[in-house]
Design a protein around this nucleic acid. Structure first.
Lengths: 232, 232
DNA sequence: TTGATGCTTCGGCTGCCGCCGAACCATTGA
DNA sequence: TCAATGGTTCGGCGGCAGCCGAAGCATCAA
């Protein structure tokens, strides 16, 4: 069966520590330079170059040249979801030595991070829960959400770029994405990305360099309370 | 970050051709003997033994001794879902040589297979669609379904072991599982397994040995029409 | 008890793959 | 044009991990 080989090839591509470190950084959804990825993985530029070209060849990454730099990003949100599902598995692996799951040791990452291009972790869940509890978001089908009329008004007041989000016709508008640390769905898709953008633009959250971890600012914490009625 | 290592370890465990072949066989949800798995992977018993103990150690598999034999099965449905998500990735990898996705080359597998312990593929989707269209199944939350009152009656008439399914309190009753070939959700969980059992018990479907592929019998094809109002 | 079967452990071989140094190409800026 | 910077290609080294043969335990059937 051909699918077996394909399975092992994809898995093997993710199964090297250096490549996994790069993929983990790229889970922030942004594009990073080859040298940036090399430093993150703790290897030389030429070794990283080999890894990167292999991952492009394997359709895990997409590359874009810009001047002297070469930027790499995840090829698709499917790749991000596959990585998340593996991380969910890794998180439940209770080692006999310490029964503490791996993600528990990184509380900041668990608190708030980017998942591809939208917010995840406790903050991502808090935002999503608020939207559904206020009736702004309703489940639609197995893996999507519907933004209700009041929900549209709410987003507009918040400054979310709804027209821009709808314009990205090639991707899902409001998608459910399983959160690997909270093990519940949060909002992703074009709307999820637009909401995350709003958080960054209004100074409610800051990306930490070289990490998926996101820091919630003081004003962000206040905004969660006043706009979303949530405390984290 | 510790999660990075955990990610690469899990992925590497799936990234070996022999182990991937074993995992693929175990995706039928049943337990298989060590020698059976060795033959499937095309390696000797002692080599397989090493692979199997590593996968047990890595919490991918669970082992159970029975007489002289030792049976291995997937440790949890989480493992099955992670493998499915990787297969979904592998399926979309269009090689430049042939733009045909891998699963297209195995139409039987795409038509009907077991996913862990329930039906997947076109038949799994047809059954699920029929249940939802008749109002027997309603979406409940992001990843579950609710079996309605008419749905319970329908299942009882069909001979599905509902009490037995409800008894498995440790697992989800009616879960949504994303089908990697159809890319839509089908019914899984205890109810999904019970429905699949009914198909096998009533001779509507037959497992092909050493494969996830399931053959729909003639009576099964008729049953799909008469009971589910579906044609495949 | 004896032999057959299923599985595992041990030891040693082999090949692959990740790694780096060195050299090379491309872009930028002076 | 020349130096500096970012990336890739090439060649060779070293270690790990997958593989098997041989031997060692269990279990079952006589």
């Amino acid at each position: 069966m051909i699918t077996v080989n394909a399975l092992s090839e994809v898995a093997a591509l993710m199964g090297d520590p250096a490549r996994a470190a790069m993929l983990s950084l790229l889970m922030d959804g942004r594009a990073h330079t080859a040298s940036d990825l090399a430093i993150t993985a703790g290897i030389t530029a030429q070794t990283a170059s080999g890894h990167l070209s292999r991952m492009v060849e394997g359709n895990l990454l997409a590359a874009r040249a810009q001047g002297r730099n070469r930027f790499y990003r995840l090829a698709s949100s499917d790749v991000a979801h596959a990585i998340e599902s593996l991380m969910a598995l890794a998180g439940t692996r209770a080692t006999p030595a310490s029964r503490t799951a791996a993600w528990r040791r990184d509380p900041d990452l668990r608190f708030c991070r980017t998942c591809y291009d939208h917010l995840a972790g406790q903050v991502g869940i808090a935002v999503t829960d608020s939207l559904t509890q206020h009736g702004y978001l309703e489940p639609k089908g197995p893996r999507d959400w519907k933004l209700t009329q009041p929900g549209e008004l709410f987003c507009e007041r918040l400054g979310v770029d709804l027209p821009g989000a709808r314009q990205a016709s090639s991707r899902h508008f409001a998608r459910q994405c399983l959160d690997w640390s909270e093990r519940r769905p949060h909002i992703s898709g074009a709307l999820g990305a637009a909401i995350a953008d709003t958080f960054f633009k209004r100074g409610w959250a800051e990306r930490l360099r070289r990490s998926r971890t996101v820091r919630l600012t003081d004003s962000g914490r206040r905004a969660l309370g006043s706009h979303f009625g949530a405390t984290v």
